[in-house]
Amino acid sequence: MIIRILGEGQFDVPDDALDRLNGLDDAVESSVDAGDEGAFAGALAALLDGVRDSAVPHEPGTLDTSDLILPHAGATLEEVRDLLSGDGLIPG
């Protein structure tokens, strides 16, 4: 799966990392639903770190479409609220 982190680039994430990333995504979604800025900042940082830690950078210069797009590290709770679907940032 190719995941783009806005402002950073694309990452190739192995399928076996998706369950863990979904758990981190659930924390982001819960903090957004609760309007908890403090929990949100930590949850978003953990999700983005989870992608970076489990993935390898996608080949630069390719024009491959991202399967998922995640917000940049400095995104606000309101910006992420606008991006969320019923399945969170990472469906599943």
Rank of each mutant, 00 (worst) to 15 (best):
residue 36 D to T: 05
residue 47 L to P: 00
residue 37 E to R: 11
residue 8 E to P: 01
residue 50 G to I: 09
residue 34 A to E: 14
residue 61 G to S: 06
residue 44 L to V: 06
residue 2 I to T: 08
residue 55 A to V: 02
residue 43 A to Q: 01
residue 19 D to Q: 13
residue 8 E to Q: 12
residue 3 I to W: 05
residue 50 G to K: 02
residue 33 D to Y: 08
residue 18 L to C: 06
residue 25 D to C: 10
residue 71 P to S: 12
residue 2 I to S: 01
residue 23 G to F: 06
residue 38 G to A: 14
residue 44 L to E: 02
residue 51 V to E: 08
residue 74 G to Y: 09
residue 70 L to P: 00
residue 67 D to T: 13
residue 40 F to V: 05
residue 34 A to P: 00
residue 70 L to A: 06
residue 40 F to D: 02
residue 10 Q to M: 12
residue 8 E to F: 04
residue 30 S to T: 12
residue 51 V to Y: 06
residue 64 D to P: 00
residue 45 A to R: 13
residue 4 R to P: 00
residue 20 R to E: 15
residue 30 S to A: 14
residue 36 D to I: 03
residue 60 P to W: 04
residue 14 P to Q: 12
residue 24 L to W: 00
residue 72 H to P: 00
residue 24 L to H: 02
residue 2 I to H: 06
residue 64 D to R: 12
residue 8 E to L: 09
residue 10 Q to Y: 03
residue 4 R to E: 15
residue 47 L to E: 03
residue 36 D to P: 00
residue 68 L to N: 04
residue 21 L to M: 09
residue 24 L to M: 12
residue 45 A to T: 14
residue 26 D to E: 13
residue 72 H to Q: 14
residue 57 P to Q: 09
residue 2 I to G: 01
residue 65 T to Y: 09
residue 58 H to D: 12
residue 33 D to S: 11
residue 38 G to D: 15
residue 18 L to R: 10
residue 34 A to N: 10
residue 63 L to R: 10
residue 10 Q to T: 04
residue 11 F to Q: 02
residue 51 V to W: 06
residue 55 A to M: 07
residue 64 D to F: 08
residue 65 T to E: 15
residue 3 I to Q: 03
residue 71 P to G: 11
residue 42 G to S: 12
residue 12 D to H: 07
residue 25 D to V: 06
residue 31 S to H: 05
residue 19 D to T: 14
residue 53 D to W: 05
residue 24 L to E: 06
residue 23 G to M: 10
residue 4 R to F: 05
residue 14 P to H: 09
residue 59 E to M: 12
residue 21 L to D: 01
residue 30 S to N: 11
residue 17 A to V: 02
residue 59 E to S: 12
residue 29 E to T: 14
residue 53 D to N: 14
residue 37 E to L: 10
residue 73 A to V: 09
residue 58 H to N: 13
residue 41 A to C: 01
residue 39 A to G: 14
residue 15 D to T: 07
residue 9 G to W: 08
residue 40 F to M: 06
residue 27 A to R: 13
residue 59 E to N: 07
residue 41 A to L: 10
residue 31 S to G: 05
residue 37 E to N: 09
residue 8 E to H: 05
residue 59 E to C: 04
residue 49 D to L: 11
residue 2 I to M: 09
residue 54 S to M: 10
residue 48 L to R: 02
residue 56 V to Q: 14
residue 7 G to M: 03
residue 31 S to K: 02
residue 25 D to R: 02
residue 37 E to T: 13
residue 26 D to N: 10
residue 4 R to H: 08
residue 54 S to K: 04
residue 55 A to R: 03
residue 35 G to H: 09
residue 65 T to M: 13
residue 26 D to W: 04
residue 16 D to W: 11
residue 57 P to E: 15
residue 43 A to T: 02
residue 45 A to C: 03
residue 60 P to T: 08
residue 16 D to N: 14
residue 9 G to R: 05
residue 49 D to V: 07
residue 54 S to Y: 03
residue 11 F to W: 14
residue 48 L to E: 02
residue 18 L to A: 05
residue 62 T to F: 07
residue 66 S to T: 06
residue 14 P to D: 12
residue 49 D to F: 10
residue 52 R to M: 11
residue 13 V to C: 10
residue 21 L to P: 00
residue 65 T to H: 10
residue 6 L to F: 07
residue 6 L to I: 12
residue 15 D to P: 01
residue 57 P to T: 12
residue 20 R to G: 12
